[in-house]
Amino acid sequence: MIFNLLAILLGISTIVFALVAIYTKKLIFAILATGGVSLFASILYLLMAAPDVALTEAAIGSGLTTLIFLFILNKIKEEDV
Protein backbone atom coordinates (compact mmCIF):
# COMPACT_ATOMS: atom_id res chain seq x y z
CA MET A 1 0.00 0.00 0.00
CA ILE A 2 2.82 2.31 1.06
CA PHE A 3 4.56 1.62 -2.23
CA ASN A 4 1.50 2.78 -4.23
CA LEU A 5 1.41 6.02 -2.29
CA LEU A 6 5.14 6.56 -2.85
CA ALA A 7 4.71 5.73 -6.53
CA ILE A 8 1.91 8.30 -6.92
CA LEU A 9 4.06 10.91 -5.23
CA LEU A 10 7.00 10.07 -7.53
CA GLY A 11 4.70 10.17 -10.55
CA ILE A 12 3.39 13.60 -9.71
CA SER A 13 6.88 14.98 -9.02
CA THR A 14 8.20 13.65 -12.36
CA ILE A 15 5.34 15.34 -14.18
CA VAL A 16 5.93 18.59 -12.26
CA PHE A 17 9.64 18.46 -13.08
CA ALA A 18 8.80 17.78 -16.72
CA LEU A 19 6.54 20.85 -16.85
CA VAL A 20 9.30 22.89 -15.24
CA ALA A 21 11.79 21.58 -17.79
CA ILE A 22 9.56 22.68 -20.67
CA TYR A 23 8.39 26.05 -19.44
CA THR A 24 11.35 27.62 -17.58
CA LYS A 25 13.04 30.52 -19.32
CA LYS A 26 16.56 29.68 -18.13
CA LEU A 27 18.10 26.78 -20.02
CA ILE A 28 20.20 25.68 -17.05
CA PHE A 29 17.09 25.04 -14.95
CA ALA A 30 15.49 23.13 -17.79
CA ILE A 31 18.45 20.77 -18.06
CA LEU A 32 18.59 20.20 -14.32
CA ALA A 33 14.84 19.56 -14.31
CA THR A 34 15.34 16.91 -17.03
CA GLY A 35 18.00 15.32 -14.83
CA GLY A 36 15.50 15.37 -12.00
CA VAL A 37 12.82 13.76 -14.15
CA SER A 38 15.10 10.88 -15.06
CA LEU A 39 16.25 10.54 -11.43
CA PHE A 40 12.66 10.20 -10.20
CA ALA A 41 12.01 7.75 -13.00
CA SER A 42 14.89 5.56 -11.84
CA ILE A 43 13.48 5.57 -8.31
CA LEU A 44 10.11 4.58 -9.79
CA TYR A 45 11.85 1.67 -11.54
CA LEU A 46 13.24 0.54 -8.18
CA LEU A 47 9.71 0.46 -6.85
CA MET A 48 8.68 -1.62 -9.81
CA ALA A 49 11.27 -4.28 -8.98
CA ALA A 50 13.58 -3.46 -11.91
CA PRO A 51 16.99 -2.73 -10.30
CA ASP A 52 18.99 -3.17 -13.51
CA VAL A 53 16.95 -0.53 -15.26
CA ALA A 54 17.10 1.78 -12.27
CA LEU A 55 20.91 1.65 -12.23
CA THR A 56 21.11 2.29 -15.98
CA GLU A 57 18.61 5.12 -15.85
CA ALA A 58 20.47 6.71 -12.96
CA ALA A 59 23.93 6.32 -14.50
CA ILE A 60 23.13 7.09 -18.09
CA GLY A 61 19.78 8.83 -18.04
CA SER A 62 20.32 11.41 -15.36
CA GLY A 63 24.14 11.31 -15.17
CA LEU A 64 25.52 11.33 -18.67
CA THR A 65 22.67 13.06 -20.55
CA THR A 66 22.69 15.99 -18.17
CA LEU A 67 26.49 16.13 -18.39
CA ILE A 68 26.43 16.28 -22.20
CA PHE A 69 23.65 18.87 -22.07
CA LEU A 70 25.72 21.03 -19.73
CA PHE A 71 28.80 20.75 -21.92
CA ILE A 72 26.83 21.77 -24.99
CA LEU A 73 25.11 24.60 -23.07
CA ASN A 74 28.47 25.79 -21.85
CA LYS A 75 29.76 25.73 -25.40
CA ILE A 76 26.74 27.67 -26.73
CA LYS A 77 26.67 30.20 -23.86
CA GLU A 78 30.36 30.66 -24.60
CA GLU A 79 29.64 31.63 -28.18
CA ASP A 80 27.25 34.51 -27.75
CA VAL A 81 29.13 36.29 -24.95
Binding site: T14, A18, A21, I22, L27, A30, I31, T34, V37, S38, A41, L44, Y45, M48, A50, V53, E57, G61, T65, F69, I72, L73, I76
Partner: peptide
Protein backbone atom coordinates in the same frame (compact mmCIF):
# COMPACT_ATOMS: atom_id res chain seq x y z
CA UNK B 1 14.60 26.94 -28.98
CA UNK B 2 16.32 23.83 -30.41
CA UNK B 3 17.73 22.81 -27.02
CA UNK B 4 14.23 22.96 -25.53
CA UNK B 5 13.12 20.68 -28.36
CA UNK B 6 15.83 18.18 -27.52
CA UNK B 7 14.81 18.37 -23.86
CA UNK B 8 11.25 17.61 -24.93
CA UNK B 9 12.53 14.62 -26.84
CA UNK B 10 14.54 13.32 -23.82
CA UNK B 11 11.50 13.65 -21.58
CA UNK B 12 9.29 11.67 -23.95
CA UNK B 13 12.09 9.08 -24.20
CA UNK B 14 12.13 8.71 -20.41
CA UNK B 15 8.34 8.49 -20.52
CA UNK B 16 8.54 5.57 -22.94
CA UNK B 17 11.01 3.79 -20.65
CA UNK B 18 8.65 4.24 -17.68
CA UNK B 19 5.80 2.75 -19.72
CA UNK B 20 7.92 -0.27 -20.74
CA UNK B 21 9.01 -0.97 -17.17
Amino acid sequence: NILKMIIGFTISDTGINVIIV
